[in-house]
């Protein structure tokens, strides 16, 4: 597998001592993670391990109890979610969150809002800048959709699409935010084996095409093992193992977390 990341690549994301308490429950405790430019890293763990909580803290939906998150050298703890997105972190959601009653095209065009290139007064007065930029933006959105083979259905209402297409729209929408770091939350959830293989190819493709760093939460071992270069394993809010897919597969702690005590060499 060709790897674009080397040890000399700049650090994109650095998380230090991230902790989140919900009442007395530690959802995430002392979480550390470093992502270098161009890496594709997996974050795995059993249900309730705190993976999505980490995502929510990176994207600003939750404010961490303690700890620091540096994105390209800037501490982003305490910023509003939209400010973090505008800095270049985009995400998808575990249970797809499209704008259900809008068309596929509008779903993607909304992501252009922070960098649409015209102001509200241009929009109200319908200046030529509005027309030019809006046309440009629509073309770009359609190009994006064509990458994902969605341009034929640009005028469909998002909620009427089949599951696999909704996933693709969500990834297209996240990429339209123009991110440097893409967070994918269980992109393979609910997909059949064939769709999973397609998805793995797609993730590889977008990383190369858009020069992205990707952090991926996944439940299905097959996906993470197949495409990730590094894997971090969480259980009960804590990191229990890090390493290459091969190292992780053989790690007794990971096997225990997934399959319970007393089972060895099960994976």
């Amino acid at each position: 597998m060709e790897t674009s990341a080397t040890s000399t690549s700049p650090t994109v994301l650095e998380i230090r001592g991230l902790t989140k308490f919900f009442g007395g429950l530690a959802a995430v405790r002392n979480f550390d993670l470093t992502l270098k430019h161009g890496e594709l890293v997996g974050l795995i763990g059993p249900n309730g391990a705190g993976k999505t909580t980490v995502f929510n803290m990176i994207t600003g939906l939750y404010v961490p109890t303690s700890g620091e998150i540096f994105f390209n050298g800037t501490n982003i703890v305490g910023l509003e979610p939209h400010e973090i997105t505008r800095m270049g972190i985009a995400r998808t959601f575990q249970n797809i969150r499209l704008f259900p009653n809008l068309t596929v095209l509008d779903n993607v065009r909304i992501a252009y809002h922070p960098h649409c290139g015209y102001t509200l007064s241009d929009g109200l007065l319908r200046t030529s800048r509005f027309n030019i930029k809006e046309k440009e933006l629509t073309e770009q959105a359609l190009d994006f959709l064509s990458i994902f083979q969605l341009d034929r259905i640009y005028n469909e209402t998002a909620k009427n699409l089949p599951y696999g297409e909704q996933r693709r729209v969500e990834i297209a929408r996240a990429l339209a935010c123009n991110p440097k770091l893409l967070l994918l939350d269980e992109p393979a959830a609910g997909m059949n084996p064939r769709e999973i293989i397609e998805l793995m190819d797609l993730i590889h493709f977008i990383r190369e095409r858009f020069n992205l760093t990707i952090l991926l939460i996944e439940h299905q071992m097959r996906v993470v093992m197949g495409i990730c270069e590094w894997i971090t394993v969480m259980d009960f809010g804590q990191v229990i193992a890090r390493g290459t897919p091969k190292e992780i597969q053989e790690n007794p702690l990971v096997i225990e977390a997934y399959l319970g005590k007393g089972v060895t060499h099960a994976a």
Binding site: E80, H82, T85, F99, A111, A174
Partner: peptide, 17 residues
Amino acid sequence: VAVREDEIAAKAMGIDV
């Protein structure tokens, strides 16, 4: 309109909800 459809997704798309 995005805010009406899904506030959390709107935030994640860089919209100041």
